[in-house]
Simulated scan of single mutants.
Amino acid sequence: MTSKPLILVTNDDGISAPGIRMLIGIMKELGEVVVVAPDKPQSAMGHAITINNMLYLNKVSEENGLEYSCSGTPVDCVKLAVNEILHRKPDLCVSGINHGSNSSINVIYSGTMSAAVEAGIEGIPAIGFSLSDFDWNADFGQARKFIRKIAAHVLENGLSNGTILNVNIPKLKEDEIKGIKICRQAKAVWMEKFDKRKTPNGKDYYWLTGEFVNQDEGEDTDEWALANGYISVVPVHYDMTAHHAIQELNSWKINE
C-alpha cells in the first residue's frame, strides 16, 4: 500500500487567514497535510528571508495534522518546513489562498508566490493560489473544485523541474467561472506615487499608493483570463536569465 501524498501548506496572510483554512481543508482530501505559515500577515514580502533576527516555530495543532506558526516570512516557513519539520520531501507545496490577485507583475512582490517559488527551488512541485478579492471575509468556496482539480493534476503528473504554477481566481460565483486558462503573464505596471503626510508631532512620513495599469492587449494573458471569467494558470520559474539577450551582449565584444 502506498502512503498518502505529503502536502506542505503555507501562505503570506497568516496561519489564521480564511484563505489558508479553506486551502488546508481541500488539501486534506488529497493527502497528508503539514502546515507551516506566518504567525501574522506577511503580504508583499517577496522572497525576503530572516537573517538578522531569531526565528520561532510554534506548534499550534496536531489533532488533524501538524500545524506550525512561524515568526518569519513565507520563504522562511518553507525553509524551516523542509529542513526542520518534514520527515521527507513533500510531494506538493501549495501557498494561499491569497486574499487578492497575484497576476501579472504582482508575482514579483507576492509573498504567496515567493513561498511557492522557494518550494520549487527545493525541487518540490508547487502552486500559488490567489483570489481576486481583498476582503478578509471573501467567499473562497466557489473555487474549491478548481483548486482541488489543479492540485490533483500536479500530484498525478508532476511539474518540470523549476516550474511553479501561479493560479489566480476571479471574484465570481462558481457557476460564473467559465473554466481554466493556461496563460502567460500580462505586461502591466503599477503607476505609483507616495502620499506625503505628517505625524501629530509634525514629522513627515509617506504612504505608498498607486494604480494598476494593464498595458497588454493579448488574449493569452492572465489579466485577460481573469477579466473574462476564467481562472488563470501561469507557469513561472526562478531562472531570471534573459536568455534572448545573451547573443546581443556577446556582440559588444566586451573583452576586446
Rank of each mutant, 00 (worst) to 15 (best):
T163P: 00
F140R: 08
M22K: 04
I124R: 05
D222K: 00
S71I: 06
M45V: 04
G179K: 01
L8N: 05
D39L: 03
G123I: 09
V236P: 03
K187Y: 13
E192N: 05
A242E: 08
A44I: 11
R197H: 07
A81W: 01
Y206L: 08
A119E: 11
K196S: 09
D91F: 03
S251I: 06
P200V: 10
T73F: 14
C183E: 02
W224I: 09
N157T: 04
V234M: 04
I97S: 07
E192H: 03
F212Y: 14
R184H: 10
K40P: 00
N52A: 10
N201K: 13
R184E: 07
K40Q: 13
G162I: 05
A138R: 02
E62D: 15
P235F: 01
A81H: 01
E248F: 06
L92V: 02
S103A: 14
M240E: 01
E211S: 10
T199G: 05
V189T: 12
S104C: 12
N201Q: 06
G14R: 03
W207A: 09
S110H: 08
K196P: 00
L86V: 13
R144N: 15
I51P: 00
A143D: 11
R144L: 14
D222G: 03
E29N: 11
K203T: 02
N161K: 14
K28T: 13
S130F: 04
C70L: 05
N161T: 06
L249V: 10
V167I: 07
I15R: 00
Y205I: 03
H87P: 12
T241Q: 07
G31T: 06
I105T: 01
